[in-house]
């Protein structure tokens, strides 16, 4: 597969280029505990993200989307492959070199309760991020934290409060403020709104949209909710069982999904309209085990249009339109 292919259609300069990335988690078994088999959480994926772009990453549980986010930031060590961030291979950096890069790339987690220490005030939590990266003097830091709180729509007066004094939505705002504290260029947002109620979710989505524009942030937005991803992303990557099934600009993907998996996924989303007549592609069965994925196309065991030919080769991600790639040997039968 041409390494640069999936990046076509990305605007301007490439900030992140992921090439042939693999992450296999060995499962120890047998008498002497040798790694017998491995979970192929990410199996040879490549994509680019342009500076200032928001790329959505969707997939069901077990698709490997969270592992992609963590591996890009080297919170999980890749098994093989290249992660070029602004031209530098992240995967090859020493821990010291990596620490300097961390300032440029941050993560927002799904569960703000689990990522904020309940015994720390906001001043301590955000202040530590600033201190570790040697940003500002002690006096300057206070002003910076107040600024950050106000940027995410909270009052600066809250600086000495503890996480439990906030609602879920407010805690997620604090998680975002902490990620922004070191002025990163790139943010991985891993299901940042899934734990929030609908009415509050919209507040946080709007906030993230405003911030990415105002601060010219680049973001990988990981989520299982297709409507949320459509809303926030310029481009979308669809993953299934460790592999990329389809990549396309948001507008193209949602108007004309090509890969059978993307189509099935979209048709499964319940619409808030009781008069909506759906044409549902009901997938049978569950996502297979990533320890022993189907040969050839990993989706073929659930694919409504799979034939015997799908078991042979792993379909490559093939360009089928402007910035639009799909990994299916029947790409041209379902245009």
């Amino acid at each position: 597969m041409p390494i640069d292919a999936p990046g076509a259609g990305a605007p301007s300069e490439t900030l992140l280029r992921v090439s042939n990335l693999k992450k296999h988690f060995p499962i120890r078994g047998g008498l002497f505990g040798q790694p017998a088999v491995a979970v192929k959480a990410i199996d040879d994926i490549s994509f680019d993200i342009g500076r200032g772009e928001v790329v959505g990453l969707v997939g069901e549980s077990g698709s490997g989307k969270t592992t992609v986010g963590r591996t890009i930031l080297r919170l999980t060590e890749p098994t093989s492959g290249q992660i070029l961030f602004d031209g530098q291979d992240i995967a090859a950096l020493t821990p010291q070199q990596m620490r300097a890069q961390r300032k440029r790339m941050q993560i927002v987690f799904q569960d703000p309760d689990a990522s904020l220490n309940p015994r720390e005030t906001i001043r301590q939590a955000i202040g530590r991020a600033l201190r570790l990266h040697n940003i500002g003097t002690r006096g300057e830091r206070e002003g910076r934290i107040v600024d950050l709180l106000e940027q995410v729509g909270l009052s600066g007066d809250y600086i000495d409060r503890y996480p439990h004094e906030f609602s879920g939505g407010q805690r997620q705002r604090i998680g975002i403020a902490r990620a922004l504290a070191v002025e990163p260029e790139f943010i991985v947002a891993d299901e940042p709104v899934s734990a929030l109620d609908v009415s509050v979710q919209a507040q946080v989505i709007n906030l993230m949209e405003d911030l990415t524009q105002r601060l010219n942030l680049t973001m990988l937005f990981i989520a299982h909710d297709l409507a949320v991803v459509e809303h926030i992303s310029n481009r979308v990557i669809v993953m299934y069982l460790g592999k990329i099934m389809e990549i396309a600009p948001s507008s193209t993907l949602y108007a004309a999904p090509r890969h059978p998996y993307t189509r099935a996924l979209m048709s499964a989303v319940p619409r808030p309209d009781p008069t909506f007549k759906r044409q549902r592609v009901l997938l049978q069965g569950d996502i297979p085990s990533p320890i022993n994925p189907p040969s050839g196309c990993v989706f073929r065991s659930r694919c409504p249009v799979a034939g015997p030919e799908c078991a042979g080769n792993v379909p490559a991600l093939e360009q089928i339109g402007e910035g639009h790639f799909s990994a299916c040997i029947k790409n041209h039968e379902f245009a």
Partner: peptide
């Protein structure tokens, strides 16, 4: 009405969401 207005809908593109201010 506000709850219906605040949900992102599939196929709605990038229209701005209308959140409900505050929290329960």
């Amino acid at each position: 009405a506000a709850l219906l207005g605040s949900m992102p809908r599939l196929g709605a593109g990038r229209d701005r969401l209308v959140p409900i201010p505050g929290h329960v």
